[in-house]
Amino acid sequence: SDYEVNVNGIHHRFHNISEELIKFIEEALRRGEDLREIIKKVRELLG
């Protein structure tokens, strides 16, 4: 049904976003950045 496609589409989009965010955060932590600064950047990215 349309509803299922829609829900799956939304889930898929969020899954991709969270994968990208996790990579972004892991790389920043590897560079020794402060978690609070990383979260601030993530918030800015998400608008």
Rank of each mutant, 00 (worst) to 15 (best):
E44A: 07
F24W: 12
V42Y: 04
E4T: 06
I25C: 02
A28M: 14
G9N: 04
E26Y: 06
I10V: 13
E26F: 05
V7T: 04
I17V: 15
G47L: 13
I10Y: 07
Y3T: 01
N16A: 06
H15I: 08
F24A: 06
I38W: 02
R43C: 06
L29G: 03
R13N: 15
N6P: 01
A28K: 08
L45I: 13
L46R: 08
H15G: 10
L29H: 04
H12D: 05
I22V: 08
E37V: 14
K40T: 13
I22R: 09
I17P: 03
I39F: 03
V5Q: 01
E19P: 13
I17A: 08
L46T: 13
S18Q: 05
I39C: 02
L29I: 13
R30H: 15
N16V: 02
F24N: 05
I22H: 04
K41M: 14
I17F: 02
S1G: 08
I22S: 02
L46Q: 15
G9I: 01
R30C: 03
R43Y: 15
S1R: 15
R43A: 15
L21M: 14
L21G: 10
L29W: 05
E27Y: 09
H12K: 02
G47P: 09
F24P: 01
L45A: 12
N8E: 07
E20M: 08
R43P: 05
I10N: 12
H12A: 05
I10Q: 13
V42W: 03
H11I: 15
L21E: 06
E33W: 14
D2N: 05
E37S: 12
R43H: 15
K23H: 14
R36F: 12
V7L: 07
A28N: 11
L35R: 02
E20H: 09
R31N: 14
R13W: 15
I39R: 03
E33Y: 09
I25E: 00
I38M: 04
D34F: 08
L21W: 05
R36P: 12
V5H: 01
L35I: 12
I25Q: 00
G47D: 13
I38D: 00
N6R: 08
S1C: 08
R31W: 09
E19Q: 14
F14V: 00
I17G: 01
L29M: 10
E44M: 06
A28W: 12
L46F: 06
K41T: 12
G32F: 08
D2G: 04
N16C: 05
L29Y: 04
I39Y: 03
K23A: 10
H11A: 15
E4S: 04
N6I: 14
E27F: 10
E4Q: 05
H12T: 03
N16E: 04
V5N: 01
L45C: 04
Y3V: 02
D34C: 05
R30D: 12
I39M: 03
L21V: 12
E20V: 07
E26C: 03
F14L: 01
L45E: 09
Y3P: 01
L46A: 10
K41E: 10
E19R: 11
E44C: 07
E19I: 11
Y3C: 03
R31V: 11
G32N: 11
I17C: 03
S1V: 15
H12I: 15
K23M: 14
L45M: 13
L46H: 10
A28H: 09
E20I: 09
N16I: 02
V7H: 08
V42A: 03
V5P: 01
S1P: 04
R43E: 15
N6L: 09
E44I: 07
D34P: 13
I38G: 00
N16R: 04
H11T: 15
K41W: 12
I25P: 00
R31D: 11
I25V: 08
H12M: 05
L46G: 09
L35P: 11
Y3A: 01
E33I: 12
K23I: 12
S1H: 14
S18W: 02
H11F: 13
V5Y: 02
G32R: 00
